[in-house]
Design a protein around this nucleic acid. Structure first.
Lengths: 142, 142
DNA sequence: TAAAATTTAATTGCATACGACTAAAAATAT
DNA sequence: ATATTTTTAGTCGTATGCAATTAAATTTTA
């Protein structure tokens, strides 16, 4: 094939497209394992943070999961109505909303424990490749 | 730190989260370069395909960009109203919608030619790392 | 050929994403 | 102490994303 000045604009020559496609693909592969837990992928990563920290402000959650309040507020309300967390205004600083994990939220951890192993077995990478990939991705995120 | 059976559920031990975060980050970095062209990232990758093929059915576009009709139909209508493409039912097979590029759509390619170089200069990877990353990502997508 | 199955887009409903804006509270400056 | 600035969530508008359903056209089957 004759190279042209437009080669850089071909989908197959992009780095970012495989990244975009792989991310969506992985979220899709989580779905069958998360559906039984009643979690979406975004709710799942939020629960991971809550399992570790028990109590965080909205913006602290946002820093961990890289999401802003426009995404988090409606999702946290949903998770609250599903009984996983509860939200209350900060006593000391009434600007912030403190998100805390409920007993039901805590209990879900036991079921979620199976998920990571199930996922790694359906992502076709060796442990070595996975570590390599992770380190390359972290260079992008900074 | 003492390891626990829940370590696999920590966000920092995930492979998929950096993938998810990096993909969103890259789309964000495209925005300043795509805004002047009046394109979103999804529209941009669709235009890449249209620049190569001039005429495709909706599902053919979907195969290239990994999106289904639920996403594509509204977006293609938007792109049509923006003058980049036009849509018409197939003459031979009236089930399919043929998407064709307009002269304005073609003309946009000249401006878009600058985008890939601008992006690579703000993704902090060497050429070698980028190729390595791409090959790892393609193993995930299959 | 008529009925059944398949293919193709479109539609609908739900869940993100994010930028821009608003409102309230707290921190800072004058 | 008051005015200004900053911080923090929440809201709104636009754009994805995808599963499930629908509808129309085509192909296959009986």
């Amino acid at each position: 094939m004759k190279p042209t000045k437009y080669d850089a604009l071909k989908l197959e020559n992009q780095l970012c497209f495989p990244l975009y496609a792989a991310a969506k693909e992985v979220v899709r592969r989580y779905k069958p394992f998360l559906d039984p837990l009643g979690l979406t992928y975004t709710q799942y990563i939020t629960m991971m943070v809550m399992w570790e920290h028990k109590e965080l402000t909205v913006s602290q959650i946002g820093e961990y999961v890289h999401l802003d309040t426009g995404t988090l507020t409606p999702m946290l309300k949903k998770m609250e109505s599903n009984g996983l967390i509860f939200r209350q205004r900060g006593r000391k600083d009434e600007r912030e909303t403190i998100v805390s994990i409920t007993p039901e939220g805590k209990a879900l951890r036991k079921q979620a424990i199976e998920v990571p192993a199930k996922i790694s077995s359906c992502v076709n990478l060796t442990l070595d490749e996975a570590l390599q990939l992770k380190s390359l991705l972290e260079k992008i995120i900074i």
